[in-house]
Protein backbone atom coordinates (compact mmCIF):
# COMPACT_ATOMS: atom_id res chain seq x y z
CA UNK A 1 0.00 0.00 0.00
CA UNK A 2 2.80 2.39 0.96
CA UNK A 3 4.47 1.68 -2.31
CA UNK A 4 1.26 2.30 -4.23
CA UNK A 5 0.79 5.69 -2.56
CA UNK A 6 4.38 6.62 -3.28
CA UNK A 7 4.15 5.56 -6.91
CA UNK A 8 0.87 7.41 -7.35
CA UNK A 9 2.23 10.67 -5.98
CA UNK A 10 5.43 10.30 -7.95
CA UNK A 11 3.41 9.54 -11.10
CA UNK A 12 1.22 12.59 -10.62
CA UNK A 13 4.27 14.78 -10.14
CA UNK A 14 5.86 13.56 -13.39
CA UNK A 15 2.43 13.62 -15.00
CA UNK A 16 2.08 17.32 -14.21
CA UNK A 17 5.18 17.99 -16.28
CA UNK A 18 3.94 15.79 -19.13
CA UNK A 19 0.66 17.67 -18.92
CA UNK A 20 2.40 21.01 -19.39
CA UNK A 21 4.51 19.70 -22.25
CA UNK A 22 1.50 18.04 -23.90
CA UNK A 23 -0.43 21.28 -23.51
CA UNK A 24 2.31 23.08 -25.42
CA UNK A 25 1.98 20.55 -28.26
CA UNK A 26 -1.80 21.01 -28.29
CA UNK A 27 -1.48 24.81 -28.38
CA UNK A 28 0.62 24.69 -31.54
CA UNK A 29 -1.53 21.98 -33.09
CA UNK A 30 -4.66 24.08 -32.55
CA UNK A 31 -3.06 27.27 -33.82
CA UNK A 32 -1.06 25.99 -36.77
CA UNK A 33 -2.06 22.35 -37.37
CA UNK A 34 1.57 21.34 -36.83
CA UNK A 35 2.83 18.71 -34.41
CA UNK A 36 5.95 20.47 -33.21
CA UNK A 37 8.48 17.67 -33.02
CA UNK A 38 11.16 20.29 -32.29
CA UNK A 39 9.52 21.24 -29.01
CA UNK A 40 11.82 19.05 -26.91
CA UNK A 41 14.96 20.49 -28.46
CA UNK A 42 13.64 24.06 -28.20
CA UNK A 43 12.83 23.52 -24.52
CA UNK A 44 16.30 22.11 -23.85
CA UNK A 45 17.83 25.15 -25.54
CA UNK A 46 15.82 27.38 -23.17
CA UNK A 47 17.05 25.27 -20.23
CA UNK A 48 20.64 25.85 -21.36
CA UNK A 49 19.97 29.58 -21.34
CA UNK A 50 18.81 29.18 -17.75
CA UNK A 51 21.99 27.22 -16.98
CA UNK A 52 24.19 29.99 -18.38
CA UNK A 53 22.29 32.76 -16.61
CA UNK A 54 22.27 30.89 -13.31
CA UNK A 55 25.98 30.13 -13.64
CA UNK A 56 26.74 33.79 -14.31
CA UNK A 57 24.48 35.28 -11.61
CA UNK A 58 24.35 32.49 -9.06
CA UNK A 59 20.57 32.78 -8.92
CA UNK A 60 18.23 29.91 -9.77
CA UNK A 61 15.30 32.27 -10.20
CA UNK A 62 17.01 34.58 -12.68
CA UNK A 63 17.84 31.48 -14.71
CA UNK A 64 14.24 30.28 -14.39
CA UNK A 65 12.88 33.58 -15.71
CA UNK A 66 15.50 33.63 -18.47
CA UNK A 67 14.36 30.16 -19.56
CA UNK A 68 10.74 31.29 -19.81
CA UNK A 69 11.73 34.40 -21.77
CA UNK A 70 13.99 32.36 -24.04
CA UNK A 71 11.19 29.86 -24.57
CA UNK A 72 8.77 32.58 -25.66
CA UNK A 73 11.41 34.05 -27.94
CA UNK A 74 12.43 30.73 -29.52
CA UNK A 75 8.78 29.99 -30.32
CA UNK A 76 8.28 33.32 -32.03
CA UNK A 77 11.55 32.97 -33.95
CA UNK A 78 10.80 29.43 -35.13
CA UNK A 79 7.43 30.63 -36.43
CA UNK A 80 8.68 33.84 -38.05
CA UNK A 81 11.94 32.53 -39.48
CA UNK A 82 11.16 28.92 -40.31
CA UNK A 83 7.58 27.68 -40.15
CA UNK A 84 6.07 30.68 -41.93
CA UNK A 85 7.96 29.66 -45.08
CA UNK A 86 7.03 26.00 -44.96
CA UNK A 87 4.33 24.88 -47.37
CA UNK A 88 1.61 23.39 -45.17
CA UNK A 89 -0.23 21.77 -48.08
CA UNK A 90 1.12 18.40 -47.02
CA UNK A 91 1.09 17.80 -43.24
CA UNK A 92 4.40 16.00 -43.62
CA UNK A 93 6.34 19.13 -44.65
CA UNK A 94 6.28 20.94 -41.28
CA UNK A 95 7.02 17.64 -39.52
CA UNK A 96 10.17 17.09 -41.58
CA UNK A 97 11.23 20.69 -41.04
CA UNK A 98 10.64 20.31 -37.29
CA UNK A 99 12.79 17.16 -37.25
CA UNK A 100 15.48 19.11 -39.09
CA UNK A 101 15.29 21.78 -36.40
CA UNK A 102 15.83 19.10 -33.75
CA UNK A 103 19.09 18.03 -35.42
CA UNK A 104 20.18 21.65 -35.82
CA UNK A 105 19.40 22.73 -32.26
CA UNK A 106 20.93 19.63 -30.68
CA UNK A 107 24.08 20.00 -32.80
CA UNK A 108 24.48 23.65 -31.85
CA UNK A 109 23.92 22.88 -28.16
CA UNK A 110 26.49 20.10 -28.39
CA UNK A 111 29.02 22.46 -29.97
CA UNK A 112 28.48 25.24 -27.43
CA UNK A 113 27.99 23.30 -24.21
CA UNK A 114 29.46 19.87 -24.99
CA UNK A 115 27.48 16.70 -24.62
CA UNK A 116 28.22 15.77 -21.01
CA UNK A 117 25.45 15.94 -18.44
CA UNK A 118 25.42 19.21 -16.52
CA UNK A 119 23.95 19.32 -13.05
CA UNK A 120 20.64 21.16 -12.87
CA UNK A 121 19.72 22.69 -9.55
CA UNK A 122 16.33 22.91 -7.86
CA UNK A 123 15.02 25.84 -5.82
CA UNK A 124 13.48 23.53 -3.22
CA UNK A 125 14.49 20.29 -1.58
CA UNK A 126 13.62 17.06 -3.34
CA UNK A 127 13.59 15.30 0.02
CA UNK A 128 10.03 14.02 0.60
CA UNK A 129 8.07 14.91 3.72
CA UNK A 130 7.62 11.77 5.77
CA UNK A 131 4.37 11.03 7.51
CA UNK A 132 4.48 8.00 9.79
CA UNK A 133 7.51 6.56 8.05
CA UNK A 134 5.94 7.00 4.62
CA UNK A 135 7.79 9.29 2.19
CA UNK A 136 5.31 11.59 0.49
CA UNK A 137 5.67 14.59 -1.79
CA UNK A 138 8.77 16.74 -1.59
CA UNK A 139 8.72 20.55 -1.51
CA UNK A 140 9.97 20.42 -5.10
CA UNK A 141 7.02 18.23 -6.13
CA UNK A 142 4.69 20.84 -4.66
CA UNK A 143 6.53 23.53 -6.62
CA UNK A 144 6.03 21.48 -9.80
CA UNK A 145 2.31 21.10 -9.14
CA UNK A 146 1.92 24.77 -8.35
CA UNK A 147 3.86 25.93 -11.40
CA UNK A 148 1.88 23.70 -13.75
CA UNK A 149 -1.42 24.66 -12.11
CA UNK A 150 -0.62 28.36 -12.47
CA UNK A 151 0.32 28.00 -16.14
CA UNK A 152 -2.70 25.85 -17.01
CA UNK A 153 -5.08 28.27 -15.26
CA UNK A 154 -3.44 31.29 -16.83
CA UNK A 155 -3.73 29.79 -20.32
CA UNK A 156 -7.35 28.78 -19.71
CA UNK A 157 -8.10 32.32 -18.58
CA UNK A 158 -6.31 33.91 -21.55
CA UNK A 159 -8.15 31.77 -24.09
CA UNK A 160 -11.59 31.88 -22.51
CA UNK A 161 -11.77 35.37 -21.06
CA UNK A 162 -9.51 37.82 -22.86
CA UNK A 163 -9.80 39.63 -26.17
CA UNK A 164 -6.45 38.33 -27.35
CA UNK A 165 -7.55 34.78 -26.51
CA UNK A 166 -10.71 35.22 -28.55
CA UNK A 167 -8.62 36.54 -31.44
CA UNK A 168 -6.26 33.58 -31.19
CA UNK A 169 -9.10 31.06 -31.24
CA UNK A 170 -10.84 32.82 -34.12
CA UNK A 171 -7.60 32.99 -36.12
CA UNK A 172 -7.05 29.27 -35.59
CA UNK A 173 -10.59 28.22 -36.49
CA UNK A 174 -11.23 30.56 -39.42
CA UNK A 175 -8.20 32.54 -40.58
CA UNK A 176 -9.86 34.13 -43.61
CA UNK A 177 -12.96 35.31 -41.81
CA UNK A 178 -10.83 36.53 -38.91
CA UNK A 179 -8.78 38.73 -41.22
CA UNK A 180 -11.98 40.26 -42.57
CA UNK A 181 -12.89 41.07 -38.96
CA UNK A 182 -9.59 42.86 -38.42
CA UNK A 183 -7.64 40.10 -36.68
CA UNK A 184 -3.91 40.04 -37.37
CA UNK A 185 -3.84 36.29 -38.05
CA UNK A 186 -0.08 36.06 -38.56
CA UNK A 187 0.55 37.82 -35.28
CA UNK A 188 -1.81 35.49 -33.44
CA UNK A 189 0.02 32.50 -34.91
CA UNK A 190 3.36 33.85 -33.70
CA UNK A 191 1.88 34.49 -30.28
CA UNK A 192 0.59 30.91 -30.19
CA UNK A 193 4.04 29.56 -30.99
CA UNK A 194 5.61 31.80 -28.38
CA UNK A 195 3.18 30.77 -25.63
CA UNK A 196 3.53 27.09 -26.45
CA UNK A 197 7.29 27.25 -26.52
CA UNK A 198 7.28 29.18 -23.23
CA UNK A 199 5.20 26.42 -21.62
CA UNK A 200 7.60 23.85 -23.09
CA UNK A 201 10.55 25.69 -21.55
CA UNK A 202 8.81 25.66 -18.17
CA UNK A 203 8.25 21.91 -18.44
CA UNK A 204 11.93 21.40 -19.26
CA UNK A 205 12.99 23.50 -16.27
CA UNK A 206 10.74 21.42 -14.02
CA UNK A 207 11.66 17.96 -15.26
CA UNK A 208 15.37 18.12 -16.09
CA UNK A 209 16.56 18.35 -12.45
CA UNK A 210 14.59 15.18 -11.64
CA UNK A 211 16.38 13.20 -14.34
CA UNK A 212 20.06 12.77 -15.17
CA UNK A 213 20.71 16.46 -15.73
CA UNK A 214 21.06 18.92 -18.56
CA UNK A 215 22.05 17.40 -21.89
CA UNK A 216 21.12 18.22 -25.53
CA UNK A 217 18.94 15.09 -25.57
CA UNK A 218 17.48 15.61 -22.10
CA UNK A 219 13.91 16.07 -23.35
CA UNK A 220 13.80 13.29 -25.95
CA UNK A 221 12.02 10.74 -23.76
CA UNK A 222 9.89 13.40 -22.13
CA UNK A 223 8.78 14.45 -25.59
CA UNK A 224 7.66 10.90 -26.41
CA UNK A 225 5.70 10.69 -23.16
CA UNK A 226 4.14 14.11 -23.65
CA UNK A 227 3.27 13.36 -27.25
CA UNK A 228 1.54 10.20 -26.03
CA UNK A 229 -0.27 12.29 -23.42
CA UNK A 230 -1.43 14.74 -26.09
CA UNK A 231 -2.70 11.91 -28.28
CA UNK A 232 -4.40 10.23 -25.30
CA UNK A 233 -6.25 13.48 -24.67
CA UNK A 234 -6.97 14.14 -28.33
CA UNK A 235 -4.61 16.63 -29.97
CA UNK A 236 -7.33 19.27 -30.13
CA UNK A 237 -8.22 19.37 -26.47
CA UNK A 238 -6.28 21.40 -23.86
CA UNK A 239 -8.10 19.74 -20.92
CA UNK A 240 -7.43 16.42 -22.64
CA UNK A 241 -3.70 17.19 -22.70
CA UNK A 242 -3.69 17.85 -18.97
CA UNK A 243 -5.61 14.67 -18.12
CA UNK A 244 -3.55 12.72 -20.66
CA UNK A 245 -0.35 13.98 -19.03
CA UNK A 246 -1.45 12.83 -15.59
CA UNK A 247 -2.56 9.45 -16.94
CA UNK A 248 0.74 8.87 -18.72
CA UNK A 249 2.64 9.93 -15.61
CA UNK A 250 0.72 7.43 -13.48
CA UNK A 251 1.05 4.58 -15.98
CA UNK A 252 4.79 5.10 -16.29
CA UNK A 253 5.22 5.33 -12.54
CA UNK A 254 3.34 2.07 -11.93
CA UNK A 255 5.14 0.26 -14.73
CA UNK A 256 8.55 1.40 -13.54
CA UNK A 257 7.69 0.70 -9.88
CA UNK A 258 6.12 -2.73 -10.29
CA UNK A 259 7.68 -4.08 -13.48
CA UNK A 260 11.04 -2.34 -13.69
CA UNK A 261 12.18 0.94 -15.17
CA UNK A 262 13.59 -0.78 -18.27
CA UNK A 263 10.03 -1.26 -19.42
CA UNK A 264 8.87 2.37 -19.24
CA UNK A 265 9.84 3.41 -22.80
CA UNK A 266 8.03 0.31 -24.05
CA UNK A 267 5.00 1.08 -21.90
CA UNK A 268 4.72 4.56 -23.45
CA UNK A 269 4.67 3.10 -26.93
CA UNK A 270 2.14 0.41 -25.97
CA UNK A 271 -0.12 3.10 -24.49
CA UNK A 272 0.23 5.24 -27.60
CA UNK A 273 -0.60 2.30 -29.83
CA UNK A 274 -3.55 1.24 -27.68
CA UNK A 275 -5.11 4.71 -27.78
CA UNK A 276 -4.57 5.02 -31.52
CA UNK A 277 -6.21 1.63 -32.09
CA UNK A 278 -9.16 2.04 -29.72
CA UNK A 279 -9.87 5.76 -29.89
CA UNK A 280 -7.82 7.39 -32.65
CA UNK A 281 -9.38 10.78 -31.92
CA UNK A 282 -8.21 10.59 -28.30
CA UNK A 283 -10.29 10.27 -25.16
CA UNK A 284 -11.42 13.88 -25.36
CA UNK A 285 -12.16 14.05 -29.07
CA UNK A 286 -14.91 16.55 -29.72
CA UNK A 287 -18.20 14.92 -30.60
CA UNK A 288 -19.22 17.44 -33.22
CA UNK A 289 -17.48 17.51 -36.57
CA UNK A 290 -15.00 20.34 -36.95
CA UNK A 291 -16.10 21.52 -40.34
CA UNK A 292 -19.26 23.56 -40.43
Amino acid sequence: MDRFVFLTLDGLSRGAVYAAFALALVLIWRAARVVNFAQGAMAVAAAYVAYSVSAATGSYWLGFLAALAAGLLFGAVVDRVVMRYVDHASPLNPVIVALGLVLLIQAVLGMVYGSEFRPAGTPFSREGFTVGGLALLSPYDLFVFAAVAVVVSALAWIFARTAVGLRMRAAAFAPEVSRLLGVNVGGMLTLGWALASGVGALAAMLVIPTELGLHPHAMDLVFVSAFTAAVVGGLDSPPGAVVGGLVVGLVLSYVSGYAGSDLTPLAVLVLLLAVLLVRPGGLFAPVAARRV
Binding site: R167, A170, E176, S178, V183
Partner: peptide, 22 residues
Amino acid sequence: PEGRGVIGELTVDENLRLGGLW
Protein backbone atom coordinates in the same frame (compact mmCIF):
# COMPACT_ATOMS: atom_id res chain seq x y z
CA PRO B 1 -18.40 36.24 -47.25
CA GLU B 2 -20.09 33.46 -49.17
CA GLY B 3 -21.45 30.92 -46.74
CA ARG B 4 -21.47 33.79 -44.20
CA GLY B 5 -18.34 32.83 -42.28
CA VAL B 6 -19.94 32.22 -38.91
CA ILE B 7 -17.27 30.57 -36.76
CA GLY B 8 -18.97 27.38 -35.59
CA GLU B 9 -16.58 26.71 -32.70
CA LEU B 10 -17.26 30.08 -31.08
CA THR B 11 -20.43 31.12 -29.28
CA VAL B 12 -22.89 33.63 -30.69
CA ASP B 13 -21.60 36.21 -28.24
CA GLU B 14 -17.96 35.55 -29.15
CA ASN B 15 -18.72 35.78 -32.86
CA LEU B 16 -20.43 39.12 -32.33
CA ARG B 17 -17.76 40.55 -30.04
CA LEU B 18 -15.13 39.57 -32.60
CA GLY B 19 -16.79 42.01 -35.00
CA GLY B 20 -15.97 44.95 -32.72
CA LEU B 21 -12.69 43.81 -31.21
CA TRP B 22 -10.59 45.99 -33.50
